[in-house]
Design a protein around this nucleic acid. Structure first.
Lengths: 333, 333
DNA sequence: TTGAAAGCGCTAACAC
DNA sequence: GTGTTAGCGCTTTCAA
């Protein structure tokens, strides 16, 4: 690396402490010596070793971000927003992926802690009391997003249940006779954190209860494309409500290969409003859960925790229904 | 944080060196004392301070990754691949965005260097001799991707020119009478690194020269959607060749709003083969530049440089033309 | 206004 | 086998 304060001190004929004072502009110091030191620092292109500084100050100005993977549009949008918001505060980010693997998530968190990040933002696949204890065992502020780990852990999310309920209501108002809720296997609770999907399912069920004349189906199997397609075999007017845009897109693609298109043959609604949708026809109806807003809110909450400002540790944001072209009123006969 | 080697030493009644030996499994040590130390380490949940280790070893096991932003599909795919490949080698990544801002790119690089990353992967907006000197002023290996900064700087990319040439040839074989090459403003050379676009343009020109009977148009203006649409006003059979899928998608969207669709009204080809295309109809013809492969190649090249293995510092990968539905043979009259 | 000395937590050279 | 000592580059008392 470059030059150190020690060498600068020798060059300027002063002590390291004086150099430090000049560089950090603290304490009393003779303006002339200060100028001389600053000039030398510039000439020799001095730059502080951030590791050393972090070691002694116990603060690195890094926040760790742990998510599933970056390939997912939702996380990519999130990440971008987190980086920008963090940078505004003079912080940088350290990204770690857990690939939906509980053990890997733990390892990544441990490593980030060992690297002394000042805080973390975590989209967890783990949950429960035991994991809560694990997270609390670090004396580092951690803000969770998307999936709730447990009560008491700082969390930023949206009103998942209300969003689902509202969406289903709107769909049913359009006269669909059958509603199919599609999500990842809920029985995988022991394998991953399916908090958001459970919440959305609850919202779905709540809304369906108010329309007892309509048929409700839940598909949470692994290989669900075929199962979904099967739902279209009766003559009922059917709509799919997918817990995630990606899955909605996959389903539309699959159904298209079978010669079926929305909105003519089926209704479909997603969740997330990922930006891929801009380019897809027909425009998918979906729910905007404002990844960017969740991201910036999480970062700001994290900073409040880092700075030990007293603060509410739970922030639930609003959602917005995005009317696309895949949910339509009953066609005239 | 947790317990330190110093405290462990006191607990076990040995010196710090012995603790270190037990922990790192180096040097001669009595198996019994070792076991005792390891047990204590476990009981007290000892974990090494990675900052301190990095400081003394001069190695952090981090690589810095500097890209435009993560929202771009291409970079997201890239990043994911980089993270995974790095992790395989026991390394982690530190992400920094430059947002197409030359100065910010420099700042980010400096900061990563100050944090003593062991190497960097850089998709640069800068270029030229001066910048080359800047990069070389760090004694940290840096591998550039996408855009070439200057000869002599380690670089991983694909055969951009050949790819463009081949693509144009294939398009022309389908009988299109007019070819429009679309890319960002090439006059912005002073503002950003437009290396890949220049390469592709060259390939375009080379191919066009072999078909003197066809009309060639280049559009590299900022607000080019309208200009592109204007190209369809004559009655010629026209194909667009866009230097980037995103722009192709934007153009298709725009033209659709004007009531024009591919392949009936125009041909269009992209570049990158981003995964968004999977969900878009019609399937865009494009060129696969294998973001993942570039990523893993770059990481591996970087490790060779870090480990000072003698190595070629330039790796140019192959491309593949992806036949979609937006380039078709002349319709029968 | 300046400097000496100690310490962050780890590793490494050398002596016993 | 084990311990002593020194050092990475920075910050922070405390004393002059």
């Amino acid at each position: 690396m470059g030059i150190t304060t020690k060498e600068l001190a020798k060059i300027c004929g002063v002590s390291r402490t004086t150099v430090h004072r000049a560089l950090t502009d603290t304490g009393r110091i003779n303006p002339q010596t200060k100028d001389a030191i600053l000039k030398a620092a510039k000439d020799y292109d001095y730059r502080p070793d951030l590791l050393a500084r972090g070691l002694v100050k116990g603060q690195t100005f890094y926040i760790g971000v742990i998510v599933l993977d970056v390939n997912n549009r939702y996380f990519a949008q999130m990440l971008n927003a987190i980086e920008m918001e963090a940078r505004k505060h003079g912080y940088f980010i350290n990204i770690a992926l857990h690939e939906n693997n509980k053990a890997m998530e733990k390892e990544q968190i441990i490593r980030l802690a060992d690297y002394r990040v000042d805080g973390m933002i975590l989209s967890s696949v783990n949950q429960g009391q035991e994991y809560k204890d694990f997270l609390n065992s670090f004396d580092i502020p951690i803000v969770t997003i998307d999936n709730k780990v447990a009560e008491g852990i700082p969390f930023v999310g949206i009103k998942e249940r209300e969003a689902a309920r509202e969406a289903v209501r709107r769909i049913l108002e359009k006269g669909y006779e059958k509603m199919v809720f599609v999500c990842p296997p809920l029985s995988d609770r022991y394998k991953e954190n399916i908090y958001v999907h459970e919440q959305r399912l609850e919202g779905f069920n709540e809304a369906m209860r108010q329309y007892p004349d309509r048929e409700a189906v839940v598909i949470d199997k692994k290989d669900n494309l075929k199962l979904c397609a099967g739902q279209l075999e009766d003559s009922k007017r059917t709509a799919f409500f997918c817990s995630g845009d990606i899955f909605a897109l996959e389903l539309m693609k699959y159904l298209k290969s079978k010669g079926l298109a929305s909105p003519a043959d089926y209704g479909i609604m997603g969740f997330d409003n990922i930006d891929t949708l801009e380019y897809v026809t027909p425009r998918l109806s979906t729910i905007d859960n404002s990844a960017e807003q969740v991201a910036t809110t999480a970062v700001n909450l994290l900073f409040e925790l880092i700075n030990k400002e007293k603060t509410e540790t739970k922030r639930i944001l609003d959602f917005a229904i995005v009317e696309g072209e895949t949910i339509t009123a009953q066609a005239e006969t």
